[in-house]
C-alpha cells in the first residue's frame, strides 16, 4: 500500500532536483525549469496531504493546487518575458555572463 511517506519522499526528491537545476545550470531558462520542478513538488505535497488528510471532502488542498497552477503559469510567462528582454540586451542567457551589477 502506498502511504503518505512515499509521496512526501518522492516530492522531496523532485524538489531537490529542481533546486539542483537552479543552483547548477548556467542557462537562465533552465533555472526557470528548476523553479517549475520545485513548484510541482510543492503541489504534489498539497494533493498528497489533501488525499491522506482527515477531511478529503473539504476541497481546500485541491483548490490550493488549482490556484498555484494558475499562478505558476503567470510566473512562467513573466519569467520567460524577462529572460527574452535580458537576452535582447546582452545577447546571451548565460547568467554567469550577465554580471554587470557586480561592482
Amino acid at each position: 500500500m502506498v502511504s503518505l511517506t512515499h509521496y512526501l519522499l518522492l516530492s522531496a526528491v523532485l524538489f531537490s532536483l529542481g533546486l539542483t537545476a537552479v543552483l547548477v545550470r548556467r542557462n537562465a531558462i533552465l533555472i526557470l525549469v528548476g523553479i517549475e520542478l520545485m513548484l510541482n513538488a510543492a503541489n504534489l505535497n498539497f494533493v498528497a496531504f489533501w488525499r491522506f488528510g482527515p477531511a478529503p471532502d473539504q476541497l481546500a488542498g485541491l483548490m490550493f493546487v488549482l490556484f498555484a497552477i494558475g499562478v505558476a503559469a503567470a510566473e512562467a510567462a513573466v519569467g520567460l518575458a524577462l529572460i527574452i528582454a535580458v537576452y535582447r540586451h546582452y545577447q546571451t542567457t548565460d547568467i554567469d555572463r550577465i554580471a554587470d551589477l557586480k561592482g
Partner: peptide, 29 residues
C-alpha cells in the same frame, strides 16, 4: 527566441560552482 550557437556549445552547461550546488541540494534533501 534566445538560441545562441557558438561558444555556449563548447562551454560546460553547468556553472563553475556546480559541486557546491549539488552539495546544498543533497543537504536540503
Amino acid at each position: 527566441l534566445t538560441r545562441n550557437t557558438g561558444p555556449s556549445l563548447s562551454r560546460s552547461p553547468f556553472s563553475n560552482g556546480w559541486a557546491s550546488g549539488v552539495l546544498v541540494s543533497a543537504a536540503v534533501f
